[in-house]
């Protein structure tokens, strides 16, 4: 299955490009899906260690606001993206030093608390953040090139797709490495790691920082695409959305987050357009069906269809 995954990734990417060309409005939806997919890879990392974060929207919001705050000063996407990733990584390190002391529900809820503290700051510090009005992000140059709106949107889509590939590839290598396998070991036998001389907390912390970086990159891409950031990016429902996508896509492979994010965004858009009052119920029903009948998520279903294992 591992060998088929890159081919599937190329096919999914090709389908996304075709869809974005055929229906230009889908370009926006798919760029957001790619950005969320990148962030959900961070959730997948923590799931490997058996930990669920209910507060990872914090890093998406941090990355998005980094872009919003710094765009007037460093107005280039190629500078802002690494800055958002770096900032989210540093924040992830500071928070991770605290939350990686805890496991299971305590880990999840502490992350939720951190995200909600950030949400409140974004809401209340109106003079800096413009509160719930949010901050508008102007179209910015990319690698020194000032671009037209359509070209800009295509370029951001291309950057998101390229980053999804590169980061997904790196994550695959990581998960199969001693460090990634030790991370998975935390889920079943953390004590054994310590008796092998491996600092389990250090392994989890490094994964946590990586997941924060992925969140920061996702958030920066969302800000560059939607061009408007609000505190809602850090609200608990946004964190729940990331976990939702992770379960929908399946945690068995790095393609799962992107399948999940694309399906989630498409169902949301179509359900919201067709059943304005009931789209959340439709999304809830989709998740329920996945949990009941396809616990491996969309990736697990794809793996089964091809004849391999989800992991």
């Amino acid at each position: 299955m591992r060998k088929i995954e890159p081919i599937l990734a190329i096919l999914v990417a090709a389908a996304m490009i075709v869809a974005a060309i055929a229906a230009p409005w889908l370009r926006f939806v798919l760029t957001i899906a790619l950005a969320k997919g990148i962030a959900v890879m961070g959730i997948l990392l923590l799931l490997r260690a058996g930990q669920v974060s209910f507060g990872h929207a914090l890093y998406i919001a941090f990355g998005a606001y980094t872009v919003a705050f710094l765009a007037p000063r460093f107005g280039d996407a190629m500078i802002l993206l690494p800055l958002a990733a770096l900032g989210a990584g540093v924040l992830g390190l500071l928070i991770g030093l605290f939350v990686t002391r805890y496991r299971q529900i305590f880990f999840g809820m502490l992350n939720l608390a951190m995200a909600m503290v950030f949400y409140s700051l974004l809401e209340k510090l109106y003079a800096i953040t413009k509160g719930s009005d949010g901050i508008r992000v102007e179209i910015m140059p990319i690698a020194g090139q000032a671009l037209e709106r359509v070209t800009y949107e295509w370029t951001i889509f291309g950057i998101a797709l390229g980053l999804a590939f590169v980061l997904g590839f790196l994550l695959r290598l990581y998960l199969a490495s001693p460090m990634g396998e030790a991370l998975a070991g935390i889920k079943t036998r953390e004590t054994r790691l310590e008796f092998m001389g491996v600092p389990a907390r250090g392994v989890l912390l490094s994964a946590y920082v990586m997941s924060a970086v992925l969140g920061g990159i996702g958030g920066a891409l969302i800000a560059m695409t939607s061009r408007h950031v609000t505190p809602l990016l850090s609200y608990w429902t946004s964190s729940g959305e990331l976990v939702f996508i992770a379960i929908l896509g399946g945690a068995g492979g790095v393609l799962g987050p992107f399948l999940g994010a694309a399906a989630y965004e498409l169902v949301r858009v179509y359900a919201a357009a067709s059943f304005a009052d009931a789209w959340q119920m439709i999304l809830g029903s989709v998740l329920l069906l996945v949990i009941l009948f396809a616990p491996g998520g969309l990736w697990g279903m794809a793996a089964r269809a091809i004849g391999g294992r989800g992991r």
Binding site: Y174, A176, M179, G197, V198
Partner: peptide, 18 residues
């Protein structure tokens, strides 16, 4: 293999365990 790798500290994130 993970026990074998742990002698080196397992801090290699990009090379496979096996």
């Amino acid at each position: 293999a993970l026990a074998v790798a742990s002698r080196d500290g397992i801090w290699s994130p990009l090379t496979p365990l096996l």
